[in-house]
């Protein structure tokens, strides 16, 4: 489990956000989701949202793209670690260019996300009892 770290998922694809939040929640994280950068900023400004430990942000989104979203998040005073989660072929380059702390290329699986969160926050990943 992850001691209730707060993860904020920002992606314009509801079919991605919903299962991602569900799985992260099952892993013990506190989760928040938004379908655009603008919605994310609105939620961040709400006092109930609280401190965010890590943002998982898509890049190709209508309105604010992922880079612009991160810039606005920082401007709003949120300092959680930022992980770019994108299908872009050059996801690492984009992450570096826009100041993300880490990146994961879509399609990814839960372990990829957990590993990135772990790298950024120092949280423990769930043990995997499977043998392969």
């Amino acid at each position: 489990m992850h001691n209730g770290l707060h993860i904020f998922v920002i992606d314009d694809e509801p079919a991605f956000v919903e299962p991602t939040l569900a799985l992260l929640s099952l892993e013990g994280f506190r989760v928040t989701g938004a379908l655009s950068g603008v919605e994310a900023l609105r939620r961040l400004s709400h006092p109930d949202t609280g401190k965010v430990d890590a943002f998982l942000i898509d890049f190709r989104m209508p309105g604010l793209n992922g880079g612009e979203t991160l810039t606005q998040i920082r401007a709003a005073g949120a300092h959680g670690r930022a992980i770019l989660v994108s299908a872009a072929a050059d996801v690492e380059r984009i992450a570096k260019e826009f100041g993300f702390d880490d990146s994961v290329r879509k399609p990814c699986d839960l372990d990829d996300l957990l590993a990135a969160i772990h790298r950024c926050t120092g949280s423990r990943s769930a043990d995997d009892a499977r043998v392969d």
Partner: peptide, 12 residues
Amino acid sequence: QDIVQRIASTRF
């Protein structure tokens, strides 16, 4: 990327 986005959630 948009097409990949369609299936990125199927794993989850």
